Simulated assay, not measured.
Amino acid sequence: MSDEPMVSSTVLERVAFTDAASDMVRQLAQRHGPVMFHQSGGCCDGSAPMCYPDGDFIIGDVDVLLQEVDIEGVEQAVPFYMSESQYEYWKHTHLTVDIVPGRGSGFSLEAPEGVRFLIRSRMFSQEEMEQLKLL
């Protein structure tokens, strides 16, 4: 037995997708190829998560990659970005991408389907913030 401390292999997720949102991502990826998300910071549709064909939205130096999310049935992990300034406000928050009926006013891929992605959020627990080194 080793005297070295155990290191947890569990990686804390910053972003998750509901089953309904995952279903829509699968459909969009089948139609458009790999997709990515950028959390809008007030342009177009308020602060909605926007889905684009991967590479169609130019990521800048001020964008933060929160996570690459593995969605069952989607060939490539789905990157999720937001601007650095918005991240400063949301870094203590776990984001869950959901989908609801209704059309957003942006250019997100799901708009023609009569649905829109939205964010449900919760604050990270004290333990999660320590794991993420946010304290």
Rank of each mutant, 00 (worst) to 15 (best):
V62D: 12
G55I: 13
V97R: 00
L135D: 12
M6C: 02
Q76V: 14
D98T: 08
F117M: 06
A77L: 08
Q86N: 09
D54K: 14
D98W: 04
Q67E: 15
A48M: 13
V97K: 00
D70A: 12
V78F: 08
C44W: 04
A29Q: 01
P5A: 04
V69A: 14
Q27A: 12
V15Q: 02
Q76N: 10
R103Q: 06
L109D: 01
E127G: 05
L118D: 06
T96R: 06
R103D: 03
F80K: 02
S8G: 02
C43N: 12
A20V: 02
S105N: 09
M6A: 05
G60H: 08
E75K: 14
M6Y: 15
T10D: 06
P5W: 07
S9K: 07
S40L: 07
R122L: 08
G42A: 11
H38L: 11
D63T: 03
S121G: 09
M24D: 01
S9A: 02
R14W: 05
S2Q: 14
D56G: 08
S85F: 05
R14D: 00
Y81K: 05
E88K: 09
Y89K: 05
H92A: 05
E84A: 13
S8K: 10
F107E: 05
G42I: 03
I71H: 07
M36H: 11
I119N: 03
P53F: 05
V115Q: 12
M24S: 00
E4V: 07
Q30A: 15
D23W: 10
P34L: 14
F124M: 07
G102I: 04
S85P: 04
V11E: 07
M123F: 15
G106K: 07
E68C: 09
T10Y: 11
S105T: 09
S8T: 02
V100S: 04
V74G: 03
A16E: 02
P53S: 08
T93M: 10
P53A: 06
H92D: 13
Q86C: 03
S105Y: 07
L132H: 10
P112R: 06
D3G: 11
A21C: 04
E75I: 06
E13I: 01
